[in-house]
């Protein structure tokens, strides 16, 4: 564990709490892509099939939290606050993402086993899981401030992981190509968002696309 990784994981936790706060406080999931949240649930379930494999208490508790919270968010969106979800805004075709990630995972993986291929699939899928949300944002052209804080924390979590990998490469000679490439792509997807978040939200303005 190092500073970057711990901060990254805490940002990831924070992003989920901000999302839950947004939904509970406004009693609405408007502006949130159900498809992105569904993809995250798929990511966590397929990645943490090794849940019973002991790494540390921290690792196990975080895995349980990520699986449970992602499924809870699906429940909030699909059942509790269903009326506030507008599917006509959430039109990104996730079938292509799922198909492409599965294909890539079958071809580019470390070991061709069931668990490993699904782990690789989850890494690739996480990289692109934010696309339906960003697509929704670009369609509506604006977002509630709290939703942008959620997206910022989520993007920051990924950006910090890049620093963690650089740190681990120099201190432990830790190499993980699959995670590096997917993580770099994932972080890059946030660059436009980061720019507008910095220009507008951090200067007290509403998030609006130019």
């Amino acid at each position: 564990m190092n500073f970057f990784r711990l901060t990254a994981d805490l940002m990831h936790l924070l992003s989920i709490f901000v999302l839950l706060l947004k939904i509970q406080k406004t009693r609405s999931c408007s502006g949130i892509s159900f498809k992105t949240q569904l993809l995250y649930a798929v990511v966590f379930v397929t990645r943490y099939l090794d849940l019973l494999k002991w790494i540390s208490l921290y690792n196990t508790l975080m895995k349980i939290f990520f699986i449970a919270s992602s499924i809870y968010i699906l429940y909030l969106m699909k059942i509790k606050f269903r009326a506030t979800y507008d599917p006509s805004q959430d039109t990104f075709r996730i079938e292509f993402l799922l198909g492409a990630c599965l294909l890539l995972a079958l071809v580019f993986n470390y070991t061709f086993t069931f668990i490993e291929v699904l782990w690789t699939f989850s890494i690739y899928l996480e990289a692109v899981a934010i696309l339906p949300q960003l697509f929704m944002l670009s369609r509506t052209g604006e977002a509630e401030t709290i939703t942008t804080h959620y997206l910022f924390a989520l993007g920051a979590y990924r950006g910090l992981y890049l620093l963690n990998w650089i740190w681990r490469f120099y201190t432990e000679h830790h190499i993980d190509w699959i995670v590096w490439v997917a993580g770099a792509i994932q972080t890059a997807l946030y660059s436009d968002f980061f720019y507008i978040y910095y220009k507008k939200v951090l200067h007290g303005q509403k998030f609006e696309l130019p």
């Binding site: 990831h12 690792n59 895995k63 470390y110 963690n164």
Partner: peptide, 10 residues
């Protein structure tokens, strides 16, 4: 590089 890849990150 070990083939038994350890996934210790989240």
């Amino acid at each position: 590089h070990n083939t038994e890849h350890k996934h210790d990150e989240l």
